[in-house]
Design a binder for these strands. Structure first.
Lengths: 258, 258
DNA sequence: AGAATGCTTGGGCTACGGTCGAAATATGCC
DNA sequence: GGCATATTTCGACCGTAGCCCAAGCATTCT
């Protein structure tokens, strides 16, 4: 029946767009808020340029991505945080991909260590950073009450924290003026513990990039913590990042034992 | 290539399952944590029993639903909160369904007023309830700090609030022992403001049902606030619920005018 | 201007998935 | 035991979506 597209099926179009492996790969590749050219996306998804173009046109039509033309390139990016959130939510359901190769397993490990969750740091590093911010008294659970609390529910910066963040290079007061949610927990799908979200999470991450404390891995949303970053994070936030060296050490020991 | 299912496409299977209109309708119908029989789901989705059975087998295989056999019926329900969360996240992306009929528009309005978001109250009523709980000093933004804060980020119950909730019939201390996240904000996709989530949100909603203050609309996840509920909510939490009576009154006037 | 690069369009092939009718299986009721 | 109901399995049909090749625009480089 034409008049009967089944009530409650509103999510189907968007879900269907994410339901194709090639498109899913493209969307996942765009999760780190970068804009990628059509050709790159085609390569990443393992399909030919015409096929990719077709997929991208669909994604564009469905409002999941936006495009900007720059010369002979067309750069695509996710249409917004809602899209990223939906992809993240779906990854919680995803059966962990079977490990097919050493290369893949190393990549997965890198992703678990540190990655971008759209515009903020995630993975073991993201979780460790939030823990350090809380332990160091820079952030506390938001204590505001009244009608304001609902919108702000999440974390607040202490007076001392505001100072520390200013030294680090993040202007908290400016962030507060933004309409975006200030700071909240975002459940990490590899760690199953929260990392820092919102305007503050994004700003800190941007600053980490500027300082060269973290840098993007090539063509994945993996992120690498530089030696300078390791030192800086320890100094600025007392962020031990303990899981990382430990994991490495354990890994080495295990390999040596082989 | 068989060895090349495109990295980053892990979300595709789950998304594809949600990408069919019939399956999407079924999943959405299950959003209120009820278990529905295969036949009902077939009717709801507007497909024949065999087709529905096929879809349900796929959903089962994909781990999105579970099934229990009771006599000659088979009751399906969502496999967990992660599934519900993914569906919710996708609805944020969904183009609001065009209004086709008066009936549909009434249903949509009812859904916007009050509905279940898996296991807790959402819609205007959900948002109003959270506002009231915060305004009444029953809940405050969680002020705990240290490593614990991350996991608990959200809301906390005050001493006075614990007392008020006990009178209402919710044992806060018991809830705290549960492994589930205690209380947090859940962005409402119709109101674009948060409503109450977590073990506390679920417990309060269950209790509202027990008291007969709210009751399910038939075969949708819409919820109706009873007169007793209106009185009780005002008395217990000072919850004005102003949008509801207004909407009803306006609605009735409009109908009488016909 | 002419060639090379990046991307999209059109055509045609294939295959998979959604659909239903009919029949089989299981359960409950009388 | 026999009939009605609930659900699944089987088989067949059809539409459509994904894929690539080849050709067509657009842009940039030399």
């Amino acid at each position: 029946m034409l008049t009967h597209p089944a009530p409650g099926a509103e999510i189907a179009p968007a879900a269907a767009l994410m339901g194709d492996p090639a498109r899913a790969a493209m969307l996942t590749a765009l999760l780190d808020q970068r804009a990628l050219a059509a050709g790159e996306l085609a390569h990443l998804a393992g399909v030919s340029p015409p096929t990719a173009s077709n997929h991208l046109a669909r994604l564009l039509d469905g409002g999941l991505v936006t495009v900007v033309r720059a010369g002979r390139h067309r750069y695509y990016r996710l249409a917004g945080r809602e899209v990223a959130a939906a992809i993240e939510a779906l990854s919680h359901l995803a059966t962990p991909a079977p490990v097919r190769s050493l290369h893949q397993s190393r990549q997965a490990a890198a992703l678990a260590r540190a990655r971008l969750c759209y515009d903020h740091l995630a993975g073991q590093a993201g979780v460790a950073l939030l823990d350090a911010l809380l332990a160091g008294g820079i952030l506390v659970g938001c204590a505001c009450s009244g009608p304001e609390a609902a919108a702000r529910a999440g974390f607040e910066v202490t007076a001392a924290g505001e100072c520390a963040l200013a030294t680090f290079g993040v202007d908290v007061r400016a962030l507060r003026r933004s309409r975006r949610r200030f700071a909240g927990p975002c459940l990490d799908w590899t760690e199953r513990r929260p990392h820092l979200n919102g305007a503050l999470g994004a700003a800190i991450t941007t600053r980490l990039m500027e300082l060269g404390w973290i840098e993007r891995g090539d063509r994945r949303r993996a992120v690498r913590i530089t030696p300078a970053g390791h030192a800086g994070l320890t100094a600025a936030f007392g962020c031990a990042l303990s899981p990382l060296p430990d994991a490495w050490a354990a890994d080495r020991t295990a390999r040596r034992a082989d």
